[in-house]
Amino acid sequence: MIKLQNIQKYFYKGEPREVHALNDISLTIKKGEFLALTGSSGCGKTTLLNAIGVLDSIDSGEIYLGNKEISQLTKDEKTDIRLNDIGFVFQAYNLVPVLNVRENISFIMKLQGTAQEIIDARVIEVANILEIQDKLDSLPSLLSGGQQQRVAVARAVASRPKIILADEPTANLDSKNSKALMDMMRELNRVEDVTIVFASHDEFVVNSVDRVIKLDDGKLL
Protein backbone atom coordinates (compact mmCIF):
# COMPACT_ATOMS: atom_id res chain seq x y z
CA MET A 1 0.00 0.00 0.00
CA ILE A 2 2.61 2.57 1.12
CA LYS A 3 6.25 1.90 0.56
CA LEU A 4 9.09 4.19 1.59
CA GLN A 5 12.60 3.50 0.33
CA ASN A 6 15.73 5.13 1.70
CA ILE A 7 14.07 8.42 2.60
CA GLN A 8 16.43 11.26 3.45
CA LYS A 9 15.21 14.62 4.62
CA TYR A 10 17.28 17.57 5.83
CA PHE A 11 16.22 20.90 7.27
CA TYR A 12 18.48 23.93 6.65
CA LYS A 13 20.61 21.82 4.34
CA GLY A 14 24.11 23.19 3.87
CA GLU A 15 23.78 25.58 6.78
CA PRO A 16 25.61 25.22 10.11
CA ARG A 17 22.31 24.46 11.80
CA GLU A 18 21.53 21.56 9.38
CA VAL A 19 19.22 18.89 10.80
CA HIS A 20 19.07 15.37 9.38
CA ALA A 21 15.35 14.89 10.00
CA LEU A 22 14.85 11.53 8.24
CA ASN A 23 17.83 9.25 7.90
CA ASP A 24 17.50 6.41 5.41
CA ILE A 25 13.95 5.45 6.28
CA SER A 26 12.57 2.39 4.54
CA LEU A 27 9.14 1.22 5.55
CA THR A 28 6.10 -0.61 4.21
CA ILE A 29 2.58 -0.01 5.47
CA LYS A 30 -0.08 -2.47 4.34
CA LYS A 31 -3.66 -1.68 3.47
CA GLY A 32 -5.94 -1.59 6.50
CA GLU A 33 -3.12 -1.22 9.02
CA PHE A 34 -3.70 0.66 12.28
CA LEU A 35 -0.29 1.87 13.32
CA ALA A 36 1.58 4.60 15.12
CA LEU A 37 4.85 6.38 14.51
CA THR A 38 6.24 7.23 17.89
CA GLY A 39 9.32 8.61 19.56
CA SER A 40 10.49 11.55 21.54
CA SER A 41 9.80 15.11 20.52
CA GLY A 42 11.87 16.05 17.44
CA CYS A 43 12.56 12.45 16.44
CA GLY A 44 11.04 12.97 13.00
CA LYS A 45 7.62 11.34 13.31
CA THR A 46 5.68 14.39 12.05
CA THR A 47 8.25 14.92 9.28
CA LEU A 48 7.77 11.32 8.20
CA LEU A 49 3.99 11.66 8.36
CA ASN A 50 4.20 14.83 6.23
CA ALA A 51 6.44 13.05 3.73
CA ILE A 52 3.95 10.18 3.43
CA GLY A 53 1.16 12.73 2.99
CA VAL A 54 3.19 14.60 0.31
CA LEU A 55 2.79 17.73 2.38
CA ASP A 56 6.54 18.10 2.52
CA SER A 57 9.26 17.23 0.03
CA ILE A 58 12.10 14.81 0.67
CA ASP A 59 15.72 15.16 -0.37
CA SER A 60 16.16 11.62 -1.63
CA GLY A 61 14.46 8.24 -1.65
CA GLU A 62 11.14 7.08 -3.03
CA ILE A 63 7.60 6.98 -1.71
CA TYR A 64 5.08 4.67 -3.34
CA LEU A 65 1.35 4.93 -2.88
CA GLY A 66 0.18 1.67 -4.40
CA ASN A 67 2.43 1.35 -7.41
CA LYS A 68 2.79 5.08 -7.97
CA GLU A 69 5.90 6.97 -6.94
CA ILE A 70 4.58 10.18 -5.43
CA SER A 71 7.56 12.07 -4.03
CA GLN A 72 8.58 13.68 -7.32
CA LEU A 73 5.15 14.82 -8.46
CA THR A 74 4.37 18.46 -9.22
CA LYS A 75 2.72 20.67 -6.62
CA ASP A 76 -0.71 20.27 -8.23
CA GLU A 77 -0.31 16.51 -8.62
CA LYS A 78 0.59 16.24 -4.94
CA THR A 79 -2.47 18.33 -4.08
CA ASP A 80 -4.60 15.87 -6.09
CA ILE A 81 -3.07 12.93 -4.20
CA ARG A 82 -3.86 14.62 -0.88
CA LEU A 83 -7.37 15.41 -2.06
CA ASN A 84 -8.25 11.98 -3.41
CA ASP A 85 -6.18 9.44 -1.51
CA ILE A 86 -5.24 10.84 1.89
CA GLY A 87 -7.23 12.10 4.83
CA PHE A 88 -5.61 14.27 7.49
CA VAL A 89 -6.38 14.73 11.16
CA PHE A 90 -4.35 17.45 12.81
CA GLN A 91 -3.56 18.14 16.43
CA ALA A 92 -5.28 21.54 16.33
CA TYR A 93 -8.39 20.19 14.50
CA ASN A 94 -7.95 22.82 11.80
CA LEU A 95 -11.53 23.08 10.67
CA VAL A 96 -12.51 25.83 8.21
CA PRO A 97 -13.97 28.41 10.62
CA VAL A 98 -16.60 29.91 8.30
CA LEU A 99 -18.05 26.53 7.32
CA ASN A 100 -20.48 24.72 9.57
CA VAL A 101 -19.93 21.10 10.58
CA ARG A 102 -21.89 19.72 7.62
CA GLU A 103 -19.90 21.86 5.19
CA ASN A 104 -16.59 20.98 6.83
CA ILE A 105 -17.32 17.27 6.57
CA SER A 106 -18.40 17.59 2.95
CA PHE A 107 -15.58 19.98 2.03
CA ILE A 108 -13.26 17.38 0.48
CA MET A 109 -16.06 15.53 -1.27
CA LYS A 110 -17.20 18.79 -2.84
CA LEU A 111 -13.67 19.46 -4.04
CA GLN A 112 -13.67 15.97 -5.51
CA GLY A 113 -16.87 16.78 -7.38
CA THR A 114 -18.99 14.16 -5.65
CA ALA A 115 -22.72 14.36 -6.36
CA GLN A 116 -24.67 16.29 -3.72
CA GLU A 117 -27.01 13.44 -2.80
CA ILE A 118 -24.04 11.13 -2.19
CA ILE A 119 -22.40 13.83 -0.07
CA ASP A 120 -25.57 14.35 1.98
CA ALA A 121 -25.94 10.64 2.66
CA ARG A 122 -22.29 10.22 3.54
CA VAL A 123 -22.26 13.22 5.89
CA ILE A 124 -25.19 11.76 7.82
CA GLU A 125 -23.59 8.33 7.89
CA VAL A 126 -20.24 9.60 9.19
CA ALA A 127 -21.86 12.06 11.60
CA ASN A 128 -23.88 9.22 13.09
CA ILE A 129 -20.80 7.06 13.57
CA LEU A 130 -18.96 9.95 15.23
CA GLU A 131 -22.04 11.06 17.18
CA ILE A 132 -22.08 14.61 15.93
CA GLN A 133 -25.36 14.39 14.00
CA ASP A 134 -26.94 17.08 16.18
CA LYS A 135 -24.09 19.50 15.51
CA LEU A 136 -24.24 19.52 11.73
CA ASP A 137 -25.43 23.12 11.44
CA SER A 138 -23.08 24.54 14.07
CA LEU A 139 -19.99 26.55 13.34
CA PRO A 140 -16.72 25.04 14.67
CA SER A 141 -16.27 27.91 17.11
CA LEU A 142 -19.37 26.71 18.99
CA LEU A 143 -18.02 23.19 19.53
CA SER A 144 -15.84 21.77 22.31
CA GLY A 145 -12.33 20.52 21.53
CA GLY A 146 -13.50 16.92 21.50
CA GLN A 147 -16.39 17.69 19.18
CA GLN A 148 -14.10 19.61 16.83
CA GLN A 149 -11.69 16.71 16.68
CA ARG A 150 -14.57 14.38 15.81
CA VAL A 151 -15.55 16.72 13.00
CA ALA A 152 -11.93 16.68 11.81
CA VAL A 153 -12.02 12.87 11.80
CA ALA A 154 -15.36 12.91 10.00
CA ARG A 155 -13.91 15.23 7.37
CA ALA A 156 -10.89 12.99 6.94
CA VAL A 157 -12.88 9.80 6.60
CA ALA A 158 -15.97 11.02 4.72
CA SER A 159 -14.37 10.97 1.29
CA ARG A 160 -13.19 7.37 1.82
CA PRO A 161 -9.45 8.02 1.44
CA LYS A 162 -7.03 5.13 1.12
CA ILE A 163 -5.13 6.32 4.15
CA ILE A 164 -5.68 8.62 7.11
CA LEU A 165 -2.70 10.38 8.63
CA ALA A 166 -3.30 11.67 12.13
CA ASP A 167 -0.70 13.90 13.73
CA GLU A 168 -0.97 14.00 17.53
CA PRO A 169 -4.78 13.78 17.33
CA THR A 170 -5.18 13.41 21.09
CA ALA A 171 -2.76 16.15 22.14
CA ASN A 172 -5.53 18.65 22.87
CA LEU A 173 -8.02 16.16 24.28
CA ASP A 174 -8.62 14.92 27.79
CA SER A 175 -8.36 11.20 28.51
CA LYS A 176 -12.08 10.61 28.05
CA ASN A 177 -12.18 12.26 24.65
CA SER A 178 -8.89 10.62 23.69
CA LYS A 179 -10.36 7.20 24.36
CA ALA A 180 -13.53 8.07 22.48
CA LEU A 181 -11.48 9.27 19.50
CA MET A 182 -9.29 6.18 19.40
CA ASP A 183 -12.35 3.94 19.69
CA MET A 184 -13.90 5.72 16.76
CA MET A 185 -10.74 5.54 14.69
CA ARG A 186 -10.48 1.84 15.43
CA GLU A 187 -14.11 1.39 14.41
CA LEU A 188 -13.54 3.30 11.16
CA ASN A 189 -10.47 1.21 10.48
CA ARG A 190 -12.53 -1.90 10.96
CA VAL A 191 -15.71 -0.84 9.21
CA GLU A 192 -14.22 1.20 6.35
CA ASP A 193 -11.00 -0.81 6.08
CA VAL A 194 -9.07 2.43 5.96
CA THR A 195 -5.34 2.51 6.73
CA ILE A 196 -4.67 4.78 9.67
CA VAL A 197 -1.22 6.07 10.62
CA PHE A 198 -0.78 8.09 13.80
CA ALA A 199 2.19 10.21 14.72
CA SER A 200 2.04 10.44 18.46
CA HIS A 201 4.03 10.15 21.64
CA ASP A 202 0.83 9.65 23.64
CA GLU A 203 1.11 6.32 25.46
CA PHE A 204 -2.59 5.77 25.11
CA VAL A 205 -2.42 6.04 21.32
CA VAL A 206 0.68 3.84 21.18
CA ASN A 207 -1.04 1.20 23.30
CA SER A 208 -4.18 1.32 21.14
CA VAL A 209 -2.65 0.53 17.75
CA ASP A 210 -1.74 -2.80 16.14
CA ARG A 211 1.78 -1.82 15.15
CA VAL A 212 4.24 0.70 16.57
CA ILE A 213 7.12 2.14 14.58
CA LYS A 214 9.67 3.87 16.74
CA LEU A 215 11.89 6.65 15.54
CA ASP A 216 14.88 8.25 17.16
CA ASP A 217 16.89 11.11 15.73
CA GLY A 218 15.39 10.55 12.27
CA LYS A 219 16.11 6.81 12.17
CA LEU A 220 13.87 3.79 12.53
CA LEU A 221 14.63 1.74 15.59
Binding site: R82, N94, I108
Partner: peptide, 14 residues
Protein backbone atom coordinates in the same frame (compact mmCIF):
# COMPACT_ATOMS: atom_id res chain seq x y z
CA UNK B 1 -2.57 32.08 6.49
CA UNK B 2 -3.20 29.12 8.79
CA UNK B 3 -6.67 28.58 7.36
CA UNK B 4 -5.33 28.65 3.81
CA UNK B 5 -2.47 26.36 4.80
CA UNK B 6 -4.94 23.81 6.16
CA UNK B 7 -7.05 24.06 3.03
CA UNK B 8 -3.98 23.53 0.87
CA UNK B 9 -3.07 20.50 2.97
CA UNK B 10 -6.55 19.06 2.44
CA UNK B 11 -6.35 19.36 -1.33
CA UNK B 12 -7.55 22.90 -2.01
CA UNK B 13 -5.33 24.28 -4.78
CA UNK B 14 -3.76 27.72 -4.79
Amino acid sequence: VREFGIMLALGYKY
